[in-house]
């Protein structure tokens, strides 16, 4: 009989979300390969809550997941470097980063924890505000912002903003009711939560993005070890197909973001290399510093990531 595997993620299923698409591609490709493996996809957190997925994979109760790695940073603090401001500038840079020493270190930690990477994927994001465009660090001063993750919060606080932590699903109401002046999240969320109805300016990812997040397709090592070589090859091949699809789709996602906001009459701006460098300077004094001090091997990780041209 076929081996039946479970794949889970938190995004809507069958509605064109890129991460759902990646998992579906892997399902199609692996089943097409005819190696006796079928994949059952559980989209929209219908099996596990987003942050439970890591533990479930480590324990072998979940086989495959599209998982934002930072969600496991409470267990492996090094993972917060995959949601660190300014380390990844654009999609081509992200592609080069995948083969760097930095990612080799991260993948070793993933592997040691009992999880295998099937496909790499980096999602871009930006800022939006209803007060003023966020380009220079000074622009953020005095604004109440929602940031994605502690590293961004630390950097924004260092730039003089105040932080209101909330899930991305609450950004819309936050802006509407004045609890927030602006927010920082992924391109996908900016579009799907229709935040363009509430803001006056969008800072698109463009060539000098501050916000990138690593959201790979992962597999439980317990499951991996149960597969024979043919099945492993089928998974890796499928993973490559998904990764290639993703690379184009992610750029398309950013284009969709720009189109949606321009279409809604929102001003769209992008950071220059100098503005990006100012933010990185602030990050070095806040989030990077913090990360280097608190996380074993943190300093080296940042250095290795910054070394990637």
């Amino acid at each position: 009989a076929d081996i039946k595997l479970k794949a889970s993620h938190q995004w809507p299923g069958g509605k064109g979300d890129v991460r759902d698409e990646m998992v579906q591609i892997i399902k199609r490709e692996v089943e097409k390969a005819g190696v006796g493996v079928t994949l059952q996809v559980y989209p929209g957190k219908s099996l596990f809550k987003p942050k439970q997925q890591w533990d479930a994979m480590v324990k072998g109760q979940l086989d495959v997941s599209a998982f934002p790695l930072d969600y496991a940073s409470g267990k492996h603090p090094q993972f917060s470097s995959t949601l660190m401001p300014g380390l990844v500038k654009n999609h081509d840079h992200a592609k080069r980063l995948n083969d760097s020493d930095f990612m080799a270190d991260i993948k070793k930690i993933i592997d040691d924890a009992g999880v295998v990477v099937i496909s790499d994927a980096w999602l871009a994001g930006g800022f939006a505000s209803k007060k003023e465009c966020i380009l220079d660090p000074e622009d953020a001063r005095g604004q109440v912002l929602r940031a994605a993750g502690p590293a961004f919060e630390q950097m924004l606080v260092a730039a003089g903003a105040s932080i209101n932590a909330m899930p991305s699903s609450e950004i819309y109401t936050g802006l509407q009711t004045g609890v927030l002046d602006g927010a920082n999240t992924s391109s996908g969320s900016f579009v799907s939560y229709r935040i363009y109805e509430q803001v006056s300016c969008l800072t698109e990812p463009g060539a000098n993005a501050l916000w990138f997040m690593y959201e790979p397709i992962l597999m439980s090592k317990k499951t991996w070890n149960k597969l024979d070589d043919k099945q492993k090859d089928a998974f890796m091949a499928a993973g490559q197909v998904a990764e290639d699809y993703f690379f184009d789709a992610a750029k398309g996602l950013d284009q969709k973001l720009v189109d949606a906001y321009k279409g809604a009459g929102v001003e769209v701006v992008g950071m220059s290399a100098e503005q990006h460098a100012k933010w990185v300077a602030i990050a070095k004094e806040s989030s990077y510093k913090n990360f280097a001090e608190k996380v074993p091997g943190g300093k080296e990780l940042i250095e290795k990531a910054l070394a990637v041209e």
């Binding site: 596990f48 809550k49 439970q52 533990d55 479930a56 324990k59 072998g60 109760q61």
Partner: peptide
Amino acid sequence: FDGMGALDVIPQIFYG
């Protein structure tokens, strides 16, 4: 129906 391994995630889900 899911095997004894399910014990590994039962407390997480109850707590979650």
